[in-house]
């Protein structure tokens, strides 16, 4: 699904965290957000599944369309939006229940009751997150007993079980070791065949490895947005160049 954002401004109380952002994100691509911390990457990401609705004093203006639908329209069901736009967090957050119940949570939320169908969704989601072989013998065991990298892939599987069109990932590998990080990056290349992925990353190598397009944010503004190759090889803005050459950040 295409994402289209026009004239996006966001305030936390008096503080303006996002300034007049315009952006189109294409279907079945990986788009990376980079920029120094505090520049608004997570904030912008969380607009897309309306997680900012939960923040007191957060005010948003602009127009936001996903697949042509206005996500802030009164008729938009925010729960259905979040089903379509899945999210993976920086810190793996499996629920304190079995692996199976973690994955089955979203389908159950949306009314799937039959065991055979749940079984199928659970297996399918775990396979798509390349973690089925590691957990197929312990589906009834608590998800909290897994390693950090496995927990993060479980969270990806849990999001996939809702059958989303878009997957938002906020620094999904920043708490993980290089091997787990590699697995998740490989996973993203697979998943982009079927979904749109938007990832916030602190790691510029990661952006160059996995992203088709990259957006550079700085102090609440979108400074530059281009194909990853172009942005990293010949940036047009001074600030982008300074950032990617490591002069600040």
């Amino acid at each position: 699904m295409n994402i289209s954002v026009r004239n996006c401004n966001l305030w936390y109380g008096d503080f303006q965290a996002l300034k007049n952002i315009n952006m189109d994100i294409s279907n079945r691509e990986v788009t990376a957000f980079i920029g120094p911390s505090g520049c608004g990457k997570s904030t912008f990401l969380k607009i897309l599944n309306r997680m900012n609705d939960l923040v007191d004093g957060c005010r948003i203006t602009g127009s936001f369309h996903i697949g042509g639908v206005d996500i802030f329209d009164k008729s938009t069901d925010v729960n259905l939006l979040r089903k379509k736009v899945g999210m993976v967090f920086q810190k793996p957050n499996p629920f304190p229940m079995s692996i199976y119940d973690n994955i089955a949570f979203a389908p159950r939320t949306f009314g799937v009751r039959k065991k055979a169908e749940l079984d199928r969704i659970v297996e399918d989601s775990l396979r798509r997150a390349s973690i089925w072989d590691e957990v197929k013998d312990r589906l009834k065991k608590s998800a909290l007993g897994m390693s950090g990298g496995q927990q993060q892939r479980l969270c990806i599987a849990r999001a996939l079980a809702a059958n989303p069109d878009i997957l938002l990932m906020d620094e999904p590998t920043s708490a993980l070791d290089p091997i787990s990080t590699g697995k998740i990056e490989a996973l993203m290349s697979e998943l982009k065949q079927e979904l749109t992925i938007v990832i916030v990353t602190h790691n510029m190598q990661q952006a160059t490895r996995i992203a088709d397009k990259t957006a550079f944010f700085y102090l609440g503004e979108l400074i530059e947005y281009d194909t990853t190759e172009k942005l990293f090889s010949c940036p047009t803005d001074r600030r982008t160049e300074n950032y990617i050459t490591g002069r600040f950040g």
């Binding site: 939960l54 939006l81 967090f89 957050n93 629920f95 979203a106």
Partner: peptide, 18 residues
């Protein structure tokens, strides 16, 4: 209860009550 659990659940489309 860690806020991550609440966010995780809401982000999957479960409402507040669920």
């Amino acid at each position: 209860v860690p806020d991550g659990f609440r966010e995780g659940s809401l982000a999957l489309g479960a409402g507040k009550v669920r």
